[in-house]
Computed example of a mutant assay.
Amino acid sequence: MGTFLKIKSLGLTALMLLAVSCSGRHSVDVEPTDPAILYMGRILVTDSTAPTFTYPGTTAMLNFEGNGIAMAASPGSGQFMVEVDSMAPFKINFTPSDSLITLADSLADGPHSLRVTYAIEGYEKHPEFRGFTITGDNAKLLPAPQRPGLKIEFIGNSITCGYGTEADSGDIHFSYDTENHTLSYAYLTARALDADFNIVARSGIGMYRSYGGPREGTPAERMPVEYDRTLIYNPSHYWNHRSFRPDIICINLGTNDTSLDNYDIELFETAYKKFLAHLHILQPQAKIVLLTGPMLHGQALDDVKASLDRLAEGNDNVYRFDLSEQTGELGYGADYHPSAAQAAKNAGELTTYLRTLIP
């Protein structure tokens, strides 16, 4: 099993040279646009910038031979979860002083696999993938992993992001240190189904009204406004929907629309209906699943369920599923969001249901 360590930023080129000179080993630099890297998620790639992204769950995967591998990213990119071969996943954090982090060293000879997943919401951090460095006498990049055939898109809020899933108590307030998308119901479902997946989610967002907004809605800040953008809150780059054709789209919205019991369910349903029509035009092949989330309860849950039932009735390729409501038996994440255990329970439920929709 390899030894894992962190290298602080001294300048990317200097660090790579230093790593090679100290080890006396061969190294191979992998550009972030190399076709042998398999990416998942909404990523902006231009001639002048490295692959840029904002949504949690954005993933880079590659195969290689060598005894070690390091990852480069823009300083301050934040937290990623790393999987090397079958070793236990671990978290790394690109602070403002980090540009290169060693992910594994002293690996055995032979082929290895790497999967790196963005664990947080990066709209404030502007993260970038800047490539990898493979080290070892036999260092080389191998052909890209095979892209999964099943494609799923998850549209949602903090629950889909994995907000607070690493917190031990609902009394703990949000921080990036306790957000981990790889513990969310969405990520766990995608992995269980071996799916290529895209996440379009933001904490606090709603279909017609984001958290704490006025009863009449927040027209400028809601999912239908952000959905067509590659990077959230950035209208400069629109997402090419033809580049990802999901077989299934799961929508988990309504918790923030009904927040603080200050909502108009008719406005919610009208906005939702319009968004569904938009999705049907963009992705006519997709089966769309309307979800209720585990934080909904009481009258709000009843209202959202009834609304989604009406939207699904007689609507081709639209389906309904309710994630089980959290009761506290499985604990709470930060700010009384789903715990890791609750998210795992919901993932199991959704995985079982989605299997019924897969031919």
Rank of each mutant, 00 (worst) to 15 (best):
T230A: 12
S236P: 01
I251L: 12
Y263I: 10
R229A: 06
L253P: 08
F154D: 04
G164T: 10
F132I: 02
P143W: 04
F154M: 02
D168L: 15
S158A: 13
A190L: 07
G162A: 10
I232K: 04
Y163V: 12
I232H: 02
I152F: 03
P246I: 09
R130Q: 13
D196K: 09
T178E: 07
I159G: 03
K151R: 15
F132N: 04
F154S: 01
R215A: 05
T135E: 07
K151E: 13
E226L: 13
A186Q: 07
S169R: 06
I205Y: 00
G170N: 07
A192M: 02
C161N: 14
G149V: 15
G131S: 10
G164S: 06
E124M: 10
Y233E: 06
Y163W: 14
T270Q: 12
S184P: 05
A220Q: 12
A167S: 13
D228T: 14
K125W: 01
I249Y: 11
V225Y: 00
N157G: 06
E166I: 00
G212S: 12
S158T: 03
I134W: 04
E269M: 11
E179Q: 14
N252W: 05
S169D: 14
G136I: 05
Y227P: 04
L193I: 09
E166P: 03
G254M: 05
L253D: 07
G122S: 11
D171H: 09
S203M: 02
S175L: 03
Y123Q: 13
F129A: 04
Y185E: 01
H173E: 13
H181S: 06
H173C: 12
S158I: 02
R130V: 00
N180M: 10
T218R: 11
D228S: 15
K151W: 05
R191E: 15
S243M: 09
F244Q: 06
A192C: 01
N240H: 11
